[in-house]
Computed example of a mutant assay.
Amino acid sequence: MKTRLITLLLGCTLLAACASGPAYRPAVRADDFGYRDTMLTSDRFRVSFSGDYAMARESVETFALFRAADVALAHGATHFRINSRETSPVTSNGGGPSTSIGYGYGYPFFGTGIGYSSGGYSRTRYETVLEIQIGPDIPDSGPEIYDANELKRNLSPSVASTQD
């Protein structure tokens, strides 16, 4: 009996570990959580990060910036400019009123019951979309201009802390 219980607990622990993953990751599907980037022109990219329902807005914005630095460095640029930035809440609603009928038997009694719930829920997550520009025309400093290496170095501890 103890062996079965230990095996069951170990199996549940392994399944839970597989279900959670790193927060900073590519989004596999269009409606998935994670980052996406699209080359718009040879020097402009759209970079986005969608957080899950448990992720704070600040973390979503940090991960989008981190990804923008990754994109710039991957294309040989040391600096990038943010041309536009937007963080939006995405709210989903679900549930709603429900009715249930049940019955039961326990010697010597039999019973029925009716239940009603007016429940429902609302959850909010955040998505940040950046349009960035790279290339030789980007100066080393100025408004909305970032040093990609410095940004990655400064934000790496925040990103690494979510990579369970």
Score class of each variant (00 low, 15 high):
M1E: 04
M1V: 12
K2F: 11
L5A: 11
L10A: 14
L14R: 01
L14D: 02
A16R: 02
A16E: 01
C18I: 07
A19E: 08
A19P: 00
G21P: 02
P22I: 04
P22F: 01
A27Y: 03
V28C: 00
D31I: 10
D32M: 10
G34P: 04
Y35E: 02
M39I: 03
L40T: 11
S42F: 04
G51M: 10
D52M: 02
M55I: 09
A56D: 12
A56N: 12
E58W: 01
V60C: 05
E61P: 01
T62G: 00
F63I: 01
L65Q: 11
F66N: 03
R67H: 13
A68D: 06
A69N: 07
V71K: 02
L73W: 08
A77E: 07
A77Y: 06
F80M: 08
R85L: 13
E86H: 05
T87G: 05
T91N: 06
G96V: 12
T99M: 12
G104F: 08
G106I: 00
F110T: 11
F110C: 02
G111W: 10
G113D: 03
I114S: 01
Y116I: 05
Y116S: 01
S118E: 11
S118P: 06
G119P: 08
G120W: 00
R123Q: 15
T124P: 10
R125Q: 10
R125W: 06
R125V: 04
Y126M: 02
T128R: 09
E131W: 00
E131R: 04
E131K: 02
Q133V: 04
G135W: 01
I138G: 06
S141H: 09
S141E: 15
G142N: 06
G142Y: 09
Y146S: 01
D147N: 15
K152Q: 14
L155W: 14
P157K: 03
S158T: 11
Q163P: 00
